[in-house]
Design a protein around this nucleic acid. Structure first.
Lengths: 266, 266
DNA sequence: CCATCTTTGTGCACGCTTTCACAAAGGCAT
DNA sequence: ATGCCTTTGTGAAAGCGTGCACAAAGATGG
């Protein structure tokens, strides 16, 4: 899951648990693939394997949506695609704006998975005047000054933030003030938003750090923690190393946080 | 969280719960920011606010690492930075390869948050011969043929997959065979890996779909589900719409899944 | 029409996570 | 020293999520 605010206080959004909602897109993807191969029905076992989950979990997930399966047969692929799409709100068009057209923003703009699921990139917005007018993914980049107008004119309710960390909160505030109520945040910052606004956070480096933790464990299963008991009270020495390592990348851009989701194109 | 395999069967990796591990990078980021402002100590309340979590949760998380706080005062920022870094394995150097240098791969290569946390991009790898030799983020792109040698020569244990979905499993298999034991997957596919290999998945479109779900709920709180009872049995009509929408983006590249994490550079 | 076989839908138990609430611990002023 | 005030560290409880295991439901063949 994207590490982010618990936008819903563990409340079920309508009887559908949050954990289930997070898996629906997974099922939808597997089902779409089956649909393309013209597979008419699928059992919970098969679909679970394709989605990489437990079959009991999958059945329970579907039970929250209603009983769409046929015992002894399985689920109707097309019908399930429809039901899940409807449940997720993908049967309607969602105009989206992407703010911060660096490498990551450009990658997002080009991302095929958006358009195929009802997400339409309504506008690309960047604060750099040099970016204005450039064509990215077939769309003209517009300046931040126009943000409010773009949101209003297109009825945008979902915004994607791919700016440096230092600009994220400010952009977020403007998006929210302009009417955006859902934000996907790629900037490595905790955004504060008023109630009623959902934020999901995707942090590329956090995922790697979690992998590193497990990797370290795997490697350390042989030597029984040598450095663990050593160096018990030497914080300053290490913090110097750390700071040095950070200076190395701060030459790119030095926001208040010193961290940037993706550097701007050269 | 990146929706991915539960690589550890809910087992605590050494007394440290998985949920806690996932939050450590969050704390680390907040602490690093404090460290840069030369703040000597911080209370659980303050740090929790900065990291966007509950203070009791934070204290419990830290209690798994040991008792590094001082009652009545708080936590020593530098010392905590050191302890968390060590726990996450960030005090050592992690060579990483990125496979698939499209927009997303390039964005990852340029991502400052990696280098600053001990992750060193050892190599960029792409299957497209036209990419070979190009310089991205100051690193020369190498051809997939060299994958095994690169992994071995650099002692890489962490691989990042940013290829189209169709190539992901194949790339994954080669990475694993070459010795990689941790994979960060951006391709929209379920990867199957042998035991002992960790996979974390980041899926950009899934996050948007989850937002859309909540967005729909917010919008639908007024009109009490009109379309819910309507159209109870019309699956074919919708599946046509769906298929049409997907053809729209398949002109880019048509893998077995029809979905691509980020299109290749033009 | 009945028996059999497959597969769904779900009650239940277990374990992880979160949160509360408070005693213990340490600093600080007097 | 003593007492007060702040903040940690942690039992205990409640809330979720997961997975087992099985009864109910439907298809299928004779």
């Amino acid at each position: 899951m994207a590490t982010g605010r618990n936008h819903r206080p563990a409340t079920r959004s309508r009887g559908i648990p949050e954990a289930t909602v997070a898996r629906l897109p997974l099922y939808l993807r597997a089902l779409t693939a089956l649909s393309e191969r013209s597979v008419p029905t699928v059992s919970s076992e098969e679909l679970a394997a394709a989605a990489g989950v437990n079959s009991a979990k999958l059945r329970k997930d579907f039970s929250y949506l209603g009983s769409y399966g046929t015992r002894g047969v399985g689920y109707d692929v097309e019908y399930l695609v429809y039901q899940i799409s409807r449940e997720l709100g993908l049967t309607q068009d969602w105009p989206v704006v992407i703010v911060g057209i660096g490498n990551l923003g450009a990658a997002l703009a080009n991302y095929g998975g958006f358009a195929s699921r009802g997400f339409r990139v309504a506008s690309l917005i960047d604060a750099d005047p040099a970016m204005s007018g450039k064509i990215v993914a077939g769309i003209e980049v517009q300046h931040t000054d126009l943000l409010e107008r773009i949101i209003a004119d297109n009825g945008v309710s979902i915004g994607v933030i791919a700016t440096p960390a230092g600009a994220a909160q400010q952009v977020c505030d403007r998006l929210v003030a302009a009417g955006v109520t859902s934000i996907l945040n790629f900037a490595p910052t905790v955004l504060s938003v008023p109630d009623g606004v959902d934020v999901r956070k995707v942090d590329l480096s956090i995922e790697l750090q979690i992998l590193a933790f497990h990797e370290q464990r795997k490697a350390g299963e042989l030597d029984t923690e040598a450095a663990d008991t050593a160096a018990p009270a030497a914080p300053p020495a290490v913090s110097v190393t750390r700071r040095a390592a950070e200076d190395a990348d701060d030459d790119t851009e030095a926001g208040p946080d010193g961290d940037v989701p993706a550097v701007m194109p050269a």
